[in-house]
Simulated assay, not measured.
Amino acid sequence: MIYLRDYIMSAAIFSFFSFVWFGWAQAEIVQLKHHLWLGICAAIAAISSIVAGVLSYQNFHTASALAKFNSFTWYLIVFYTEFILGLIGALLLIKFKQSPAVPAWISLLVGIHFIALQFVFHDPSLYLLAILMLVVSALAIPINHKFKVAQSTLVGTSNGVILLIFAIFNYSRFLLN
């Protein structure tokens, strides 16, 4: 069962991380017009996150999948595992002079973590989110080599858009229930 509070909290979290990915997308951009568009997308994501955060606060008393026995524990295990692996992998990539691959590495872990979180929240849409982020991760290096687009730009923009779409999707599920 998927809970109303989980929909809006997911919208808040997805919007926030959309904002983060759009910020990361700007790391290696030179042209001002690209910064402008990514900045507008980041602003939309930030506003969306704030609105969803307020709605989450207002609905905090309602039921959540995390209130079920062991769900919150599994959520924390998934989160901390992802964080630790992300940090170790990023440090190793930097050490071996492969820092441009860090965004793809983080995207890969985030995609995998959505598969694990589906078992916590029982929300099949997380499988689609995982697949999309894993595809972005898998294509980042070949596209970078073929088209000379910075991985931070490619992965950041793609994941920013994907997460913002999923935030809007969860807004709609919240509002329609």
Rank of each mutant, 00 (worst) to 15 (best):
I168S: 12
Y3G: 02
F169D: 12
T153F: 10
F19A: 03
S71L: 02
N170A: 04
H122E: 11
S49G: 11
L87N: 13
L132E: 15
V78P: 02
Y3L: 07
V135A: 07
R5T: 03
F16R: 00
L176P: 01
G53K: 06
I168Y: 14
W74L: 04
A101Y: 09
S99T: 11
V161C: 00
V102P: 00
H35G: 05
A42D: 08
Y75T: 04
A43W: 11
K95G: 05
N177M: 09
S107Y: 13
L55S: 00
V20L: 12
I112F: 08
E82I: 09
H122C: 05
L109C: 09
L4V: 04
F60W: 06
Y127A: 07
I29K: 05
L108T: 13
S125E: 02
S158L: 08
L91P: 03
V30F: 14
S18H: 13
V155A: 07
G86Q: 12
V78S: 05
L117V: 05
F119M: 08
I8F: 01
K95A: 13
I77W: 02
I165S: 04
S18T: 07
K68E: 07
P124Y: 11
F60Q: 00
H145P: 00
W24N: 04
I13C: 07
I40L: 11
K148D: 14
I94L: 07
F147N: 02
N177V: 03
I165L: 03
Y57C: 00
N59D: 03
S64L: 04
I94T: 09
A63R: 02
V51N: 09
A43C: 08
E28R: 15
G89A: 10
L154Y: 15
S71D: 00
G53V: 02
A52H: 03
W105G: 12
I106C: 10
V102L: 07
V110W: 11
L108P: 10
V120I: 06
T81Y: 04
Y3S: 01
L32H: 12
I112E: 02
H35W: 10
F60L: 02
G53F: 10
S152T: 12
S99D: 00
L85K: 08
L154P: 01
Y7S: 01
Q98K: 15
K97G: 12
F79N: 13
L117W: 13
G89L: 07
I13K: 09
S172A: 10
A45R: 08
A150W: 03
N177W: 13
A52Y: 07
V136S: 09
A67I: 07
L4H: 12
I50E: 06
A52I: 14
I2W: 01
F174Q: 08
L55F: 01
A138V: 02
G156Y: 10
I106K: 11
L93C: 09
M133V: 12
